[in-house]
Design a protein around this nucleic acid. Structure first.
Length: 584
RNA sequence: GCCAGCGUAGCUCAGGGGUAGAGCAACUGAUUCGUAAUCAGUAGGUCGGCGGUUCAAUUCCGCCCGCUGGCUCCA
């Protein structure tokens, strides 16, 4: 089986490698049935039907067998086969999943079988010519998956692997995996004392430790300043509301499976909020709005609670309570494009400030099931598209992938390891204005329904923080570093000078720590380095005598001797410009 | 939630049917030192929880909780 994308050479190799693996598995474990084995980013997987799961030792055996089969130089041959013959062939082999696959293929599409030695598989191809060409590969891990991704279907055993043209490419890839492991925000979160989750509190609920919270405050402060500058007003809403609000909004109908169950307060049902929008709408509704008031931009760092199945929780990236950097814009239809453009500008500017310069942007259009008039959808989609073009942002259209209430733009950031994370989103909403029956008075003196836009830039602060940790491998740029400077006196004779400097730095809003412990300087440097503190200041007799600082940066071993003012000047210029360079 | 694996000191991990061990961290003392680990000592654990098997369970079994890798979904 294969996906429908055109195959490049490496994909063909990987696909053939998946076949090679399937052959090895069936030779070693004859009771196993094959299903599908597509190419994925950086490798491939194959789903097998088998009662027992594969264990790591099995992977070694399978991999060894693959090497043997590859060495046999089996020619990989394609033949077309009639539908009836195909069904009979795979039915005889007891491959009931393959039979099912054939049943799902269009009648007019030719069926092909690829054989290598006595092993064959239904497959569209293409494949390499011989098993011998598959030299560089490694099986990575196993997991389970449902047949066709549906949990009502049988459970399959999946094996993931990777294949490359050269040993060197494989080594580079494995190195990248290792690097990603080192940068894992869960590992760094512990090592740098940024956050934790507690069994006693509950899974998916984050405790921000002082250093993590420090960064969060910096993120929030920056975010708020930028929003005030850009014509937003801050609102604050509670964490729970009566169930009726969510009935009106439609959440109990469309979002129920993601909501925390109701709680009963004096006989009334309340629910933790999974979104902020209904609250902002209530604020909009507290008075009669004129077209002169629009656009109205309500922003909130709003903490929401969503039920996520326990198995999907993941560090900071997938949690049950998180804070969205949310905003809802109410505008006239003619203002959509301008507003979207402004949102896009703000998104790009903020993401760049945090060090993300590459994006993948998706425009999702009307799905099959939708609310609102077709014409409004077309206009809004056009407005989104125009804004993207005006800002010269490359994007892909995801046809029919919009949410039922309106078209949207999603933005994924690319981190320093080339991984993509969904963060920003801008969505047009035709549903809530209708459900809550909101209106404003137009120039014509009549009530009109405003257009409502939802948008988030960082998405969730938790997730964004997780991305930041991994993007910087914990070595935050100076403006974000929880501790910016650490003072390291060589002996306790120099402690007074350190205290004095600390005071002066703190008075200038520099986040400063001092290490007055009775330890050798090498030890203090090592710890500061492991804590990824941007600036280490060594203070000994020389510095005290000359009233200077021996400055060592986290990324270089060189030290420079600076006076206080020029050191402070260097810090300030980096902080004020939110510099993201490898040096700071 | 489902499949698989894991859960031993604050952290990283070893061990294993006869009620536990290392390194780092913590604490105490000595050392006052110039750019990635100074030395010595002390203390620290109902071996995730609850049941079961057994003369005896941290070890074997069951259930529960949590974590990890996936499946599905999404900020």
């Amino acid at each position: 089986m294969s996906d429908s994308k055109p195959h490049d050479e490496l994909e063909t190799l990987r696909h053939s490698c998946a076949h090679l693996m399937a052959q090895a598995v069936q030779e070693l474990f004859p009771e196993t049935q094959v299903t599908i084995g597509p190419v994925i980013e950086d490798g491939f997987y194959y789903d097998f039907s088998r009662d027992q799961a594969f264990v790591p030792e099995d992977l070694e055996k399978i991999q060894a067998r693959m090497k043997e089969i590859a060495a046999q130089d089996l020619k990989i041959v394609r033949h077309e086969i009639s539908r009836a013959a195909a069904i009979k062939k795979f039915d005889d082999m007891g491959e009931k999943f393959k039979v099912e696959i054939i049943g799902a293929i269009d009648d007019d599409e030719p069926l092909s079988v690829y054989s290598q030695g006595d092993w064959s598989d239904l497959c569209r191809g293409p494949h390499v010519e011989s098993t011998k060409q598959i030299k560089v590969f490694k099986l990575l891990h196993t997991s389970s998956a449902y047949w066709r991704g549906d949990e009502r279907n049988p459970v399959l055993q999946r094996i993931y692997g990777t294949a490359w043209n050269t040993e060197k490419e494989l080594r580079v890839y494995l190195k990248r995996l290792e690097e990603a492991k080192k940068r894992d925000h869960r590992k760094l979160g512990k090592e740098l004392d940024l956050y934790s989750v507690s069994d006693e509190i509950g899974p998916g609920l984050i405790l921000w430790h002082p250093k993590g919270a420090r960064i969060r405050h910096l993120m929030e402060d920056f975010w708020k300043r930028e929003h005030f500058k850009n014509g937003y007003e801050m609102v604050i809403s509670p964490h729970a509301a009566k169930i009726d609000l969510w009935k009106t909004s439609g959440h109990t109908e469309f979002y129920k499976e993601n909501m925390f169950p109701n709680m009963n307060i004096e006989g009334k049902e309340y629910v933790m909020k999974p979104m902020n929008c209904p609250f902002h709408i209530q604020i909009f509704k507290t008075k009669l709005r004129s077209y002169r008031d629009l656009p109205l931009r309500f922003a909130e760092l709003g903490t929401v609670y969503r039920y996520e199945r326990s198995g999907v929780l993941h560090g900071l990236l997938r949690v049950r309570g998180f804070t969205q950097d949310d905003a809802h814009l109410f505008c006239r239809p003619s203002q959509i494009e301008e507003e979207i453009t402004r949102v896009l500008e703000l998104i790009i500017s903020i993401l760049q400030s945090f060090g993300f310069f590459e994006y993948k942007i998706y425009l999702s259009t009307r799905p099959e099931k939708y609310v609102g008039a077709e014409e409004s959808w077309d206009d809004a989609t056009k407005a989104l598209e125009n804004s993207l073009r005006k800002k010269k942002l490359d994007f892909e259209v995801d046809p029919g992938e919009g949410v039922f209430y309106g078209p949207k733009i999603d933005i994924k950031i690319k981190d320093s390891l080339g991984r993509h994370w969904q963060v920003s989103t801008v969505q047009v909403d035709f549903n809530l204005p209708e459900r809550f029956n909101i209106s404003y008075i137009e120039e014509d003196g009549q009530r009109h329904q405003p257009i409502m836009l939802h948008r988030a830039l960082m998405g969730s602060l938790e997730r964004f923080f997780g991305c930041l940790i991994e993007h910087y491998a914990g070595a935050f740029p100076l403006w974000l570093a929880p501790v910016q400077v650490i003072l390291l006196p060589i002996t306790d004779k120099h402690a007074d000078y350190a205290n004095k400097l600390a005071q002066r730095l703190e008075a200038s809003d520099i986040r400063t720590e001092k290490d007055l412990r009775n330890e050798k300087i090498g030890f203090k440097i090592r710890e500061a380095q492991l804590q990824k503190i941007p600036y280490m200041i060594v203070l000994g007799d020389k510095e005290v005598d000359s009233q200077t600082l021996a400055v060592r940066k986290r990324r270089s071993k060189e030290t420079r001797t600076l006076d206080f003012d020029s050191f402070l000047g260097e810090l300030k210029s980096s902080i004020d410009s939110r510099r993201i360079d490898s040096e700071s």
